[in-house]
Simulated assay, not measured.
Amino acid sequence: MKHIITKLNPAFDHRVRLGIMSVLMLEEWVDFSSLKETLNLTDGRLASHIKALEKETYLEVRKRFIARKPNTSYRATDEGRKAFQAHLDALEALLRAGNSGQPE
C-alpha cells in the first residue's frame, strides 16, 4: 500500500484542486464565475488554487472580452489531464488494496 501512496500527486491533495480538475475534465473551457459557483468558493480561494494548478502547467488560461466585459476561462492541459487521471488511478488502487486487505 505504501508504494501506491507515493503515486498520489501532491498537486491534487486539496479538495478544491480535486474539484477544479474534476470540472475541467468534463468541460472544454470553464469560466472563473462558473467554477466559483459550482465549487462554492470565494474569489480569493479559487484564485489561489488555480494559481497552484497553473504553476504545475495543469491548466491553460484564456482571457478575452465578452460584450465588453473581461472573461477568464480555464481548461485542463494534456499534461494536467494525464496527471489527474494518474492520481485518480492511484486513488482507485488504494481503495482496492484497502478493500482486499492485500497490497497491490
Rank of each mutant, 00 (worst) to 15 (best):
T77W: 05
K63E: 14
F84P: 14
L59Q: 11
A67Y: 04
F65Q: 09
S48Y: 10
F84V: 04
E56Y: 08
A52E: 15
L59A: 11
L53H: 12
K82D: 12
S73F: 06
E56C: 01
R68W: 09
I66S: 01
E79P: 01
R64C: 05
R81Q: 11
Q85E: 12
K82C: 03
T72A: 12
T72C: 10
K82Q: 14
T57D: 13
Y74W: 07
T72W: 12
A52T: 13
G80D: 10
Y74G: 03
I66E: 03
K63N: 13
R64Y: 01
G80E: 10
R64H: 05
L88I: 14
H49N: 15
Y58N: 02
R81E: 10
L59R: 12
S48K: 09
Y74M: 02
G80Y: 13
Y74Q: 03
A83S: 11
K63G: 00
L88A: 08
A83R: 11
E79G: 01
R64V: 05
Q85V: 13
E60D: 14
R62I: 03
K82Y: 11
Q85P: 00
R62A: 12
K55Y: 05
K51I: 01
K51A: 12
T72S: 14
N71C: 09
F65C: 02
R75W: 03
D89E: 07
Y74V: 00
Y58K: 03
A83Q: 10
A67T: 07
A83G: 06
Y74R: 03
R64P: 04
R64N: 06
T57G: 00
T57K: 15
H49Y: 13
T57S: 14
L88T: 07
G80P: 14
R64M: 08
R75V: 02
E79Y: 06
T57V: 08
Y58D: 01
K51E: 09
R64S: 11
A52S: 14
A67N: 14
K69V: 05
T77N: 08
R81K: 15
K82S: 11
T77D: 07
R62D: 11
K82E: 15
S73L: 06
R81L: 13
A52P: 00
A52N: 10
F65M: 09
I66P: 00
H49C: 02
K51C: 02
E60V: 12
R75M: 13
R68E: 12
A83N: 07
S73E: 15
P70L: 02
K69F: 05
K63P: 00
E54N: 14
H87G: 07
S73Q: 15
V61N: 02
R64L: 06
F84D: 08
I66T: 05
F84N: 09
L59V: 07
D78A: 15
A83F: 12
E56S: 04
P70A: 04
K63R: 15
V61P: 01
K63W: 05
A52D: 13
Q85W: 06
D89H: 03
D89P: 00
H49K: 08
R64I: 01
I66M: 02
T77F: 04
L88K: 14
